[in-house]
Design a binder for these strands. Structure first.
Lengths: 199, 199
DNA sequence: GTCTATATGTAGATAGAC
DNA sequence: GTCTATCTACATATAGAC
């Protein structure tokens, strides 16, 4: 197999294992086994575990950018774009109830490890933060767009954490509905205008 | 030193290390070093790492119960009791910005490890959940007391996670103010009545 | 109740054959 | 580019002296 293909497979498997079991708890042996590689050959592609982590974060950043661009293209209005973000909680509910939010839990783990990559991981949250702030600004909330973005991120993180602890799907659905209600009150004028031009 | 004293010290140190660096990342050697004990002697007090974790969770449950009772005794009104809970975010902001919420991050880590104690850890959240629900019920919100309790827990978890990722104290203060505003609108009648009988 | 010495497994990481 | 064999460090855990 070509080096780049093997490398991509390693990153994909590591990404999944880091999410499902955590960074520390995922060993080289675990990753190698799932890829179908010997431990030794591993080091041809990555010299240290931190290198794999950096590659995983870089890939997540790349994937997130692509997802945000897709939402930007597939959705007409800023309010619907924001809803695209909110609805990840529903779409990914099964994995979230088992493992939490991939971004939030990684940030938490790396913060505790005081890992060099902890700011890189937080950069993933910043991607969502800035994109959401852009949508709120487009809805006419320029003044507090960033605060609104952080508030929405805060809610999604809180919902994910409690969903994992209590494994309660109805809780997720109720909180998503509550976020939607919050969006309507916060951006009522813009959303009313928006409903006249559905996507 | 007496066995019970040493045991208590071990649990205290383990509690702190599990919070600051995580359960997996904290080794017996780390705990023994901070207690001032040899690794060997350790096993006189605890046979496995899971036993220490169980003791840590049990102590946290005990401490949490005591804290909730203190709030119950020191605070007159349900709304002020709820505010006691909310204000932990401010009081513990420095540790939260460094390590997150002790309860939420432990639940997340144990969920990923699929650890036998993950439900015990979630029980810590249940303590807060039931206590908060009791306060909301006392405010006349019997019908949705549990949903309000979960919503408040969700917010505190979300604030803690983002505070860790962005290490932004102003964000914490802004969201705490927002929670206070939410409390006022959610329980306006009860809170208005309450303000006539300040604690 | 605490110590030193040690057993055993597995982690991350390397060397060198093919 | 992949393998096997191996290294060192450190993890949990035990045995037995004091």
């Amino acid at each position: 197999m070509s080096a780049s293909n093997t490398r991509r497979q390693i990153v994909d498997v590591a990404d999944r294992l880091f999410y499902e079991h955590g960074f520390e708890a995922s060993s080289f042996a675990d990753i190698a086994r799932d890829v179908g590689l010997s431990r030794g050959n591993f080091y041809y592609h990555f010299k240290t575990k931190d290198e794999i982590l950096a590659a995983v974060i870089a890939q997540r950043i790349s994937n997130t950018r692509a997802m945000l661009e897709t939402w930007e293209q597939d959705t007409e209005s800023p309010s619907d774009r924001i809803l695209s973000f909110v609805h990840i909680l529903i779409a990914n509910r099964t994995k979230i109830m088992a493992y939490g939010c991939p971004v939030g839990t990684l940030c938490n783990e790396l913060a505790k490890l005081d890992h060099v990559a902890k700011d890189e991981a937080a950069g993933l949250l910043t991607l969502f933060r800035n994109w959401l702030a852009g949508q709120f600004a487009a809805l006419g909330r320029d003044a507090d767009a960033d605060a609104l973005a952080l508030h929405l991120l805060m809610r999604s993180q809180g919902v994910a954490t409690l969903a994992t602890a209590f494994r309660d799907e109805q809780f997720i659905r109720r909180e998503v509905a509550d976020i939607e209600a919050w969006l309507r009150t916060e951006c009522s004028a813009a959303l009313a205008a928006d409903s006249r031009h559905p996507a």
